[in-house]
């Protein structure tokens, strides 16, 4: 079944993206304001579309790839809107919404057919484990975007190019601090995600940890983020170095999320493309 709400969402996200890009180019405040509200509207429709899908399928829509990507985009936009109305990071929208829209676009190209839930997934742990993990991914995604912005702005200031991007991007310390807060939050969620997964694994498969590729890569990712936080507390790694590390950790996360499903067979490969 094609969900029309899904495409309305996609359209509104796209319109918002255009607005944020226009704001970045022309610095017109009204463009940003309009884009934020269009995005908020898209988010509301998106929420509704997820609820409708949940109702129709009878189980939480985080099983097949299309659903997973859609929920991920939803969580990213939720995080962004939260920041937009609280901490407001200049130009973040222009960097973040194109990517979130692309994720939605990708999801829309996949089959929207509702399949019965495999018996192994018929558990209350499914919504908890999947939602927590995906929210962690979304927040790490935010920290990744903030790091990219940091590196651009850092280069502008170091090279004394005080035009264009310099004016449009926020301060270094602001980006660094917000990135760090995202990593903290994401890390807590990822820890909870791995923990719930392991409890669920014990119930479903009879063992807490079986070195399934998804588990292994999650652990690698977890260690990378742990390292970022540790270095920050212990020796004060921040700024450029922290931004690079964040990008490395995010690549590992990307592999955990997508690469494992694509390349490595294992117990987690329900989410077929």
């Amino acid at each position: 079944m094609h969900n029309p709400l899904f495409f309305v969402t996609l359209f509104l996200y796209f319109a918002a993206t255009m607005g944020f890009i226009m704001h970045m180019v022309t610095l017109r405040k009204d463009a940003e304001k309009a884009a934020t509200w269009v995005l908020a509207g898209g988010f509301a429709v998106h929420t509704l579309s997820i609820a409708v899908r949940w109702w129709n399928a009878g189980h939480v829509p985080m099983v097949v790839m299309r659903e997973t990507l859609s929920f991920l985009a939803w969580a990213i936009i939720a995080g962004f809107l939260f920041l937009q109305f609280t901490a407001k990071i200049k130009s973040l929208g222009a960097f973040l919404t194109p990517l979130a829209t692309a994720i939605m676009g990708w999801a829309s190209s996949m089959s929207g057919e509702i399949r019965p839930l495999p018996p192994a997934l018929q558990s209350l742990w499914l919504p908890v484990h999947a939602a927590v993990c995906l929210m962690a991914y979304a927040i790490f995604f935010l920290s990744f975007v903030l790091s990219v912005m940091y590196l651009i702005q850092e280069r502008q200031i170091k090279k004394k190019r005080l035009r264009g991007m310099f004016q449009r991007l926020p301060s270094l310390e602001g980006l660094d601090f917000m990135g760090y807060r995202c990593i903290m939050t994401g890390f807590v969620l990822l820890t909870v995600g791995i923990f719930t997964g392991s409890v669920w694994a014990e119930q479903a498969w009879g063992s807490y940890w079986s070195w399934d590729p998804k588990e292994t890569w999650s652990l690698i990712t977890w260690f990378l983020y742990a390292a970022i936080l540790h270095q920050r507390f212990a020796v004060g790694w921040r700024g450029r170095r922290a931004a690079y590390l964040t990008i490395v950790a995010f690549s590992a996360l990307l592999f955990t999320f997508l690469g494992v499903n694509l390349l490595l067979p294992g117990a987690h490969s329900y989410a077929k493309f």
Partner: peptide, 9 residues
């Protein structure tokens, strides 16, 4: 102006 772009607040 520069200090503000580095430190924010």
């Amino acid at each position: 102006e520069l200090a503000k772009k580095i430190f924010g607040d």
